[in-house]
Every structure is written in structure tokens, then in C-alpha cells.
Design a protein around this nucleic acid. Structure first.
Length: 638
DNA sequence: GTTCTAGAAC
DNA sequence: GTTCTAGAAC
């Protein structure tokens, strides 16, 4: 029973700071100020309601100990409140000795404040006099207690009346920092000035004005980031890359445009070069992530953005983060609310504009359940179970990543040996290789980042306060069923088999690194060109983007080709291989076997099909029909 | 007494 | 978009 917690606390003599024959002083377990002590009688007196005149000597003794503890700490009693709670919640009479600063992380609720700063706090002298006069202390009525708990906040050192507790706490800290605070209270002055302005408006106007102003201020925050040099990871003349304030995955960045463009729906065909440039920055920030291939990232725009500035998300697809707290957080990245970069790019180049998603549709998508895992067939109506499930994916990926790190270090060693067949490996090279492996192993098998281990060096977001203690849970399995890991529609004899759900619109191409141009304002190449980090195969020099590749160029993988120039025949290319996560066996369709498949005319064309955008297959409708000029093969970018 | 969380507030 | 708070649970 939690009401007995205090009695348990004093049973541990180690917690006694001062004691006498009749009383004990301990520190409050959850101090509400810089100094907060409790003085308790050794006798089993439950509360102030049991006290009579007979207890006056005991009360005096309690007060004496109170002044002792203050004296012992080298402080003055006048800076303390000494008294009892009118409605105590813990058993055993206890006298609070609390400093008047009220600066403490344990002061969390308005009612905490009001139990010390209204009539709910009974000073020692008041109780003493009451007992002398009436021989008892009467309980306050529940209504009175309720009203006192709801008393509007007011600073105990000046007449500042804050709107909420955090503002009061901030204000109290200023008092503490500057004891002569009343005259120099910056916050107080600022709020008073704002109040004066608002007071001149009528009530309705006032409410709307305040709300609008607050929301606008929040929306503007992203604009401020552009000038916040301290938090910019990469900067160019057109955009900056910043870490997402509330990352929704292990790696989550925003590429924010410097131009005053509110969101993706305000883009026109003239902005295609800007988009291409933003993708360049996205590639750079992905390259900086340790041994994380670009295919593990999702890049795109929120279709229903909140911030008042065009920003492109670069987010790892683990979605493993403490900030993923709401269903709408998940759906904003895993439904049509997220517009992949390529889709935006193609819509702009073919249609000239992107129409905003309707409010009704947006609300529906935000709350859509069940939530589907983005890496397998798992689904759940609960975000918490999905998060636990995502953790299992994350763990496996981290393991693979660690193995790749080790392989990379071995390849590096072998490569160095190749330079001179007769050369002996340097002891330094071996020790370097070993140390790298050790580090890798530690990272692979260490506790997961972001949720479990704030100290992990791989966690770019360490420092975020831990919140969830979610245990890892394996995806649901059926014992004895050999198809446990197969999609549900493949289970034999399943009368409720369904076809695989439509693939989410995931950006299908991994963005591989490209060599940086000499004199590029974004800096020198991050590693020697020649061996690609992801496939570890030697490749030839890259052709300049959007210009014909030399006839003898052999592309080691799809990823190494130039990304976008849809209208340039040189860049028309076969579809990228599907990522493993999206490879689901097609459901059995008997109709397919009834007649031979019609030949696909596109397969016989000399050039592979060009990427096309079908407005009927998406909820993002173009603002207007494409003009003939838009289809005439004008260069889309650069 | 605290912790947790849905829903309101900003 | 997050923060704040009241009320339930312990």
C-alpha cells in the first residue's frame, strides 16, 4: 500500500539525517525545491488529525529539529516554509521543511505547487495556535480541497501569474539565479507586454489571434533552422540538411529549402533543379552514415506537411525511435501521406504541379489501422506491438550491418596487399584491422540504439530522454506450421487466403553515391573513388550526369547510373531490381494459366520503358493536364 | 506519494 | 507539430 511508503522509508536508519529521542529528519524522496526535508515523530501518529494539546511539546520538538537541519546546511530558516499538508496523502505525521525557491525536477504538477502555496499548506505556527485554541485540527471539506488544488498559479516571490506550470518553473529558476529577480525578470516583462496588446482586442478576436499566432510561430520554427549554423549538418546555397528534432527512425534528417517555398504542393516545373539539388544533399548525408546502404533510406515529402517551409525527409526505414509515439506518426511515413521523391519528381516533370491531398483523405490516412510493417507481412492495430516488432527487424539489420563492416575492413586489408605482392603486412595495418573488427562486433551485439542504449556511439540521437521500455517481441508464429514465416496467403488450405496487399509506394531506387565534382562547393569526395562501398566491386569512372555514357562503360549495378533525366534517351533504363523486403510471392491466380500471356511490347523495344506517371493510380492529382510542351522532351533538370 | 496516458491546449 | 494536464491506477 503506497500510503505506508513513508513508514517504510524511515525504517531504514541509513536515511536518517538527524534524529532525537522522539523524532527523525529525512530528505524528501521527491523534493519539490532545492532543499526539502521531512521531520517525523518516532511515535505512531498517523496525521495532523490525531493531534491534540497534549502533542504540543512533540510539535515543538519537531520544529526544533527543523531549525537544526536548516542550520546544519548553513541556511536560514526565514528562507524555508515549515509546515504540514492540510490533506496529507502518506501516513505518519510529517513536517515539511522546504526552501522557497521551488526549483526542482520533481515539481511536475499544478497541484504540487498548490499544496505548498495555498491554504493546503498549514504553517507550523498556525497548527500550533489552532491546537492551543481548539484542541484539534479539522479536515477541510473535499470541495474546499478541490478548489484550492485548482487555484491559479502565482509566483511566491512576485505577482507573476503564469499560464502553466512550466512557465512558472522557468520563472522560478530566474528568481533563483538572480535573487533580486523582481526588477530584472525578463520573462515577466515580455509576457506583460504581450498581455497589454492582447487586452485591447475583444474576446473572440483575442482567442483566435492567440491560437493563430502560436501555431504560426511553431510553423516558422523550421525557417529559423536554416540560419541555425550550430545544427546544420550540410549547407549549400539552396538548402540545408538538419537532423530531425523528433526523429522517427534511427536516422532521420530533413533537407530544408532556403527559398521561401511553403511545401511540395507549391512546387512548379521550374523547381526541378532545386529538387535534384536537394537529392544531392540527401545522398551526401546518407553517405555519412556508417555502413548504412542508401537503399535503407526512404526519401520524400509529407503530402500534408505541417512546417511552413519545403523540407524533404531522409529517413532510415527501420522506423525505430522513441519519438514514434502515435499512429499518425507511423501513417505519415507509411501511407500515401508520404510522397516519395521520385513520385514528386515525375509528377512535376510530367504534370507541372502537385495538388494537395484533401483534408478528409488526410485525416482518414492518418488514423488508418491496422498498421502494416514496412518490412514484412506483420500487422497490428497497436502501435506499441508494431514497435516491438520493428525492434526484431532492427536487431537483424544491425547484425548484417556489423558483418558488412567486418567484410569491408578485410577487403580494405586485401586491397592494400594487392598494391605490392611482395610486401609484408605492416603490424600497424593488422592491429588497425583488428581494432576495427572489435569495434564492429561491439556495435553489432550491443544493445539497440535510440531506445535501449543512449551511450551507443552509433546512435546519432543519443541524449534523447528514454521513454519506452518495450520488450522485444518476435512476430507471431504458429508452432508446427512449416509456413510460419511465409505470407498468410501462402499457407496451404487457408480458406481466407488473401492476395498480398498492394505494395506501398516505396521509392524503388537505392541512391548510390556518385563521385563529387572537383571544386564542388559541397566539399571533397568522402572516400577514394574506385571501389563502391555497397557492392565492393571496382567500377569505371562515372559519366557526367545526364550526358551520354562512354560506349565502353560498364555499370556495376543499377545504382551507379545517373539518377534522373527522364527525357534523355541515354538515361532510359530498366527497372531497378526489387528490394528483398518487397519480394513477396504473387498469389496464385488460376486465370493466368488459361491462356498464354500476351507479349509485352515494351520488352521488345530497343530502349527500356521510360518511367511514367499514371494520375489514375494515385491520390495526388495533378493540378492541370500536361501541356504538349511538357511532354516534348525538354530537359527536366540541369 | 508517483507513473502513465488520452485528450485538450498551444 | 509537441506540450501540458487531469484523472486513473497503483
Amino acid at each position: 500500500m503506497w500510503r505506508l511508503n513513508l513508514i517504510k522509508e524511515i525504517s531504514d536508519k541509513g536515511k536518517w539525517i538527524i534524529s532525537s529521542d522522539v523524532a527523525i529528519v529525512i530528505a524528501d524522496k521527491y523534493p519539490k525545491a532545492q532543499q526539502h526535508f521531512l521531520v517525523l515523530p518516532k511515535a505512531d501518529i498517523s496525521s495532523i488529525f490525531e493531534l491534540t494539546r497534549e502533542h504540543l511539546p512533540l510539535l515543538e520538538e519537531l520544529h526544533l529539529l527543523a531549525s537544526n537541519i536548516v542550520e546544519v546546511r548553513g541556511l536560514q530558516l526565514k528562507d524555508f516554509n515549515v509546515g504540514f499538508h492540510a490533506e496529507p496523502s502518506l501516513e505518519r505525521l510529517h513536517l515539511h521543511v522546504i526552501s522557497q525557491d521551488f526549483v526542482s525536477s520533481c515539481l511536475k504538477k499544478k497541484q504540487h505547487w498548490n499544496t505548498y502555496n495555498t491554504e493546503l499548506f498549514v504553517p507550523y505556527e498556525v497548527l500550533r495556535d489552532k491546537l492551543k485554541a481548539e484542541n484539534s485540527y479539522q479536515r477541510l471539506s473535499p470541495d474546499v480541497i478541490h478548489a484550492l488544488l485548482a487555484t491559479p498559479l502565482c509566483c511566491n516571490q512576485c505577482d507573476f501569474k503564469p499560464r502553466n506550470l512550466p512557465l512558472l518553473k522557468e520563472h522560478l529558476e530566474q528568481h533563483l539565479q538572480n535573487k533580486s529577480g523582481q526588477n530584472n525578470c525578463v520573462i515577466y516583462t515580455k509576457i506583460e507586454t504581450a498581455k497589454d496588446k492582447i487586452n485591447k482586442m475583444d474576446a473572440k478576436e483575442k482567442n483566435e489571434h492567440i491560437k493563430e499566432q502560436i501555431i504560426q510561430n511553431i510553423r516558422n520554427e523550421l525557417k529559423k533552422k536554416i540560419n541555425d549554423k550550430e545544427h546544420i549538418l550540410i549547407e549549400s546555397d539552396q538548402a540545408v540538411v538538419v537532423k530531425a528534432d523528433y526523429p522517427k527512425a534511427q536516422y532521420h534528417f530533413r533537407v530544408v529549402a532556403k527559398a521561401d517555398i511553403a511545401d511540395v504542393t507549391k512546387l512548379t516545373v521550374d523547381h526541378l533543379p532545386l529538387l535534384d539539388h536537394m537529392m544531392d544533399l540527401a545522398v551526401q548525408i546518407m553517405e555519412k552514415q556508417d555502413h548504412l546502404p542508401s537503399r535503407n533510406f526512404r526519401i520524400g515529402f509529407k503530402a500534408d506537411p505541417f512546417w511552413d517551409r519545403l523540407n524533404m525527409h531522409v529517413i532510415s526505414h527501420d522506423f525505430y525511435s522513441m519519438s514514434m509515439k502515435r499512429i499518425k506518426h507511423w501513417n505519415s511515413f507509411n501511407t500515401e501521406l508520404f510522397m516519395p521523391f521520385q513520385q514528386a519528381y515525375i509528377m512535376l516533370s510530367s504534370e507541372g504541379a502537385i495538388e494537395p491531398i484533401s483534408e478528409e483523405e488526410s485525416e482518414k490516412l492518418k488514423l488508418q489501422v491496422p498498421l502494416h510493417c514496412n518490412q514484412c507481412d506483420f500487422e497490428s492495430p497497436l502501435l506499441l506491438s508494431l514497435k516491438a516488432h520493428l525492434y526484431t527487424h532492427w536487431q537483424r539489420k544491425e547484425h548484417e550491418r556489423g558483418i558488412k563492416k567486418q567484410t569491408d575492413s578485410i577487403v580494405k586489408l586485401l586491397d592494400e596487399v594487392k598494391l605490392d605482392d611482395n610486401a609484408q603486412p605492416l603490424p600497424s595495418a593488422i592491429s588497425e584491422g583488428q581494432s576495427q573488427q572489435e569495434v564492429s562486433t561491439e556495435n553489432v551485439y550491443g544493445p539497440p540504439v535510440n531506445m535501449m542504449n543512449q551511450a551507443n556511439i552509433n546512435n546519432p540521437f543519443r541524449g534523447t530522454p528514454p521513454r519506452f521500455g518495450i520488450a522485444a517481441a518476435a512476430p507471431p508464429q504458429r508452432p508446427g506450421n512449416p509456413f510460419v514465416n511465409a505470407p498468410r496467403h501462402q499457407w496451404p488450405g487457408n480458406p481466407f487466403a488473401r492476395a498480398p496487399r498492394p505494395q506501398q509506394k516505396v521509392y524503388p531506387y537505392g541512391y548510390a553515391s556518385r563521385p563529387q565534382l572537383a571544386g564542388n562547393h559541397l566539399g571533397p569526395p568522402s572516400r577514394p573513388y574506385g571501389i563502391h562501398r555497397d557492392n565492393m566491386q571496382p567500377r569505371g569512372p562515372m559519366p557526367p550526369r545526364f550526358s551520354p555514357a562512354p560506349a565502353n562503360t560498364v555499370f556495376a549495378s543499377f545504382n551507379q547510373q545517373p539518377r534522373f533525366a527522364p527525357n534523355n534517351p541515354q538515361n532510359q533504363r530498366p527497372r531497378a531490381p526489387k528490394q528483398q523486403q518487397n519480394q513477396r510471392p504473387r498469389a496464385h491466380n488460376p486465370q493466368q494459366n488459361q491462356r498464354p500471356r500476351a507479349p509485352n511490347p515494351q520488352q521488345n523495344q530497343q530502349n527500356p520503358p521510360q518511367l511514367t506517371y499514371n494520375p489514375n493510380q494515385t491520390k495526388f492529382r495533378p493540378k492541370h493536364k500536361p501541356t504538349p510542351a511538357a511532354n516534348a522532351g525538354q530537359p527536366a533538370a540541369k
